[in-house]
């Protein structure tokens, strides 16, 4: 059976790095899996909030259109059981002066593929994206986020926070694409990843593409283990190492989680991450 392509890096690079494309997980291809489709239309000038806490749907496709001056606040939490694979494909178009606040957390599933594409088509449109992922056990996380800036005076912000432990593997591709004519636009992208033990694999691919001079773009990645001096400080205050780790990862995730409007969901995610740091994967 021919493999089904799920997502591709907007501009390919060396094949040996294995980041150019990702195919649908075999279990989703051999067993026909229903695709849950969600369509969101934000009328001009309106504000829509949509929170999706996904515990069951293995394949999700979300398309959203935000009309002039509209605001979409979307929270997409992936909480699938640890023995299931899952995919999620999100496409958002923002018209003139529209705003998109997109928050996502990749917590569950054995293998997850997520793609988010936001097109800032209209002048003055804005995308503010915050994502977190927690990989442990043999979990595999594959992310492809693309913000395309087509309109003038657009603003993109992509903040990604992650932690990896055990033998988890993750690929993060994050692209800011300034199209010709996107004058006076700005783009920011940052990924911070904490590596909790040896045996993990972390691949980061931050792309910045520009066909327009009058833009200001920045991206950054930082990856490393927990700062020893910080750990030592916390442990000297009576915390054991696991407690200290929980605290540091909790702080790293806090800025993303605080965007989740539901206190119960926030609490559930924090607790699950803490438990998995404490006891390993459930």
């Amino acid at each position: 059976m021919e493999k089904e392509l799920f997502s591709t890096l907007p501009v390919p690079t060396w094949r040996w790095l294995g980041v150019n494309e990702v195919y649908l997980p075999e279990e989703l291809q051999t067993l026909p899996t229903p695709v849950r489709k969600i369509q969101i239309d934000v009328p001009a000038g309106q504000h829509v909030t949509q929170v999706i806490a996904n515990r069951t749907e293995q394949r999700t496709e979300i398309t959203a259109h935000v009309a002039e001056g509209g605001t979409l606040q979307m929270v997409q939490l992936q909480l699938l059981p640890p023995d299931k694979a899952g995919t999620c494909n999100v496409e958002v178009t923002a018209e003139k002066d529209a705003q998109v606040y997109y928050t996502t957390a990749e917590i569950g599933a054995s293998r997850v593929l997520a793609q988010v594409k936001i097109d800032l088509a209209g002048d003055g449109s804005k995308a503010d994206m915050a994502a977190l992922y927690f990989g442990d056990g043999t979990r595999s996380i594959d992310l492809n986020y693309v913000i395309t800036q087509t309109g003038k005076k657009t603003e993109a912000n992509m903040q990604v926070r992650g932690a990896l432990q055990d033998s988890a593997a993750k690929i993060f591709r994050g692209t800011l694409d300034f199209k010709a004519g996107s004058k006076d636009s700005t783009g920011r992208e940052k990924e911070e990843v904490v590596l909790l033990n040896e045996g993990i694999r972390n691949r980061s691919v931050p792309l910045m593409l520009s066909a327009e001079e009058d833009v200001n773009g920045q991206h950054a990645v930082s990856a490393g283990r927990l700062d020893n001096s910080r750990l030592f400080y916390l442990m000297s205050r009576g915390l054991d190492e696991k407690e200290a780790r929980k605290l540091v990862v909790g702080a790293l995730f806090a800025t993303v989680l605080e965007r989740v409007p539901d206190a119960e969901l926030r609490e559930k995610i924090s607790r699950e991450v803490e438990e998995r740091i404490e006891h390993g994967q459930r």
């Binding site: 690079t13 040896e198 972390n202 910045m208 773009g217 990856a223």
Partner: peptide
């Protein structure tokens, strides 16, 4: 002007930083 870096890290005990800027 395009920037296409890839980092592939297979151990925890590292300090990896990448920064890029684009502009006029």
């Amino acid at each position: 002007s395009d920037t296409l870096p890839v980092m592939d890290i297979e151990t925890d005990d590292v300090e990896i930083g990448h920064e890029a800027k684009i502009g006029r």
